[in-house]
Nucleic acid binder design. Structure first.
Lengths: 201, 201
DNA sequence: TGCAAATTTAACCACATGGTCAAACTTAAC
DNA sequence: GTTAAGTTTGACCATGTGGTTAAATTTGCA
């Protein structure tokens, strides 16, 4: 018998919760242990250091997203369908893991090197998407846009509502979480409609 | 003679730098003192605690933005002009204070209560903007959109590129800061064009 | 110049934090 | 039940942290 899978999972769950809300430096090993219902020494028995635990969690977070992102872009469909598939599946994924964007934002601003390597080596390929945009422009399907601007727009519209959930809920929606959730759900359709309307000839 | 304005400013500058990049819990009083070229006791002589210093900096950050945001929305112009004025002046402001969005995002996810009160009491009024959108729909100037979705879209397109600067620069722009700056500069025009094209009838 | 107030400093404190360790406990196989 | 490996624990340590204090230095002004 080796590591107890159950305990190991419990720790990971607890650590994700703590890191996602408090960030790396705001998270206390004691808090993770408490949340997992174990003691600090056991925590260090399973994961040798705070840094190691953090690294593992970041990697898991990326594994959730990157493959889906890639598959949407890679498919041999036209630009409009790509945008539709990408935004809806991306937002859908984000609904299931809503705290990840804020977490990544937090940490990438704090320690860009640590995360950038991870993202870059994960195989996301923006070039392919740029080419699709260029092709659509040549074919006269969309207006003449700067591919980078369009890509930034798409990412912004998908991600920002998750990053800024407290601001949106508190400021625009008077603190109503239900309205927030409904709005996000609608965005699975609305975002691509909005984008396509903005670029279609 | 009372507090030395110069020293006080130097401390504030240093503190802003530290808090903006490291967040509240990641920031060390010693680091602020070092950056300001003074020692820790003097730091506490000017600002009684880390929390107090942080509070002052947040309030300053808000004072920079809120008034400009309000003035753009308040003007008695039509929706299209409001969007143009708002996005270009907002992005322009962000260019001058590029680290504030990430800073606010970090802290609002960490401690929503502390910041939300501040924002809410600052007099930002989303209702006025909603009404402008409703009016434009009634007049048939724009297609039938959910005002909240449009507002979230506008904010997302303005803010996200600043929040996610390291991701965009690293992943989409191959680490080229100059390209990033050029792209942001162009967004002062591009964002409103994009939005208006998406909603204009 | 002398003095009182403002400013700056080095040394210090209490406490929190990440991490360790040897001992105790569980478990499954023989 | 004995044993040996894996698992869990309380007590502990070194260091880093925000914050204090009393004494020294500088400053403006009579």
């Amino acid at each position: 018998m080796k590591y107890n899978k159950d305990t190991s999972e419990k720790i990971l769950d607890a650590a994700v919760r703590e890191f996602e809300t408090k960030g790396y430096s705001g998270t206390r090993m004691q808090a993770i242990a408490d949340r997992a219902g174990i003691n600090k020494a056991l925590l260090h028995y399973y994961y040798k250091s705070k840094d190691a635990l953090f690294q593992i969690i970041i990697q898991k977070a990326f594994k959730v997203f990157i493959p889906k992102v890639i598959s949407a872009i890679d498919e041999e469909t036209d630009l409009f369908e790509t945008i539709e598939k990408f935004t809806s599946s991306y937002i859908d994924n984000l609904i299931q893991h809503p705290r990840i964007p804020a977490f990544i934002t937090l940490e990438i601003n704090n320690n860009p090197e640590r995360l950038l390597g991870l993202i870059q080596s994960s195989g996301v390929n923006v070039e392919k998407f740029k080419q699709k945009i260029d092709t659509a422009i040549e074919k006269g399907e969309i207006i003449d846009v700067e591919p980078i601007q369009l890509i930034v727009n798409i990412i912004s519209l998908c991600l920002f509502p998750f990053v800024a959930k407290p601001i949106i809920t508190g400021l625009v929606l008077n603190g109503d979480e239900k309205v927030y959730e409904k709005m996000i759900e609608e965005r699975k359709q609305e975002v691509s409609k909005f984008i396509i309307r903005a670029i279609k000839k």
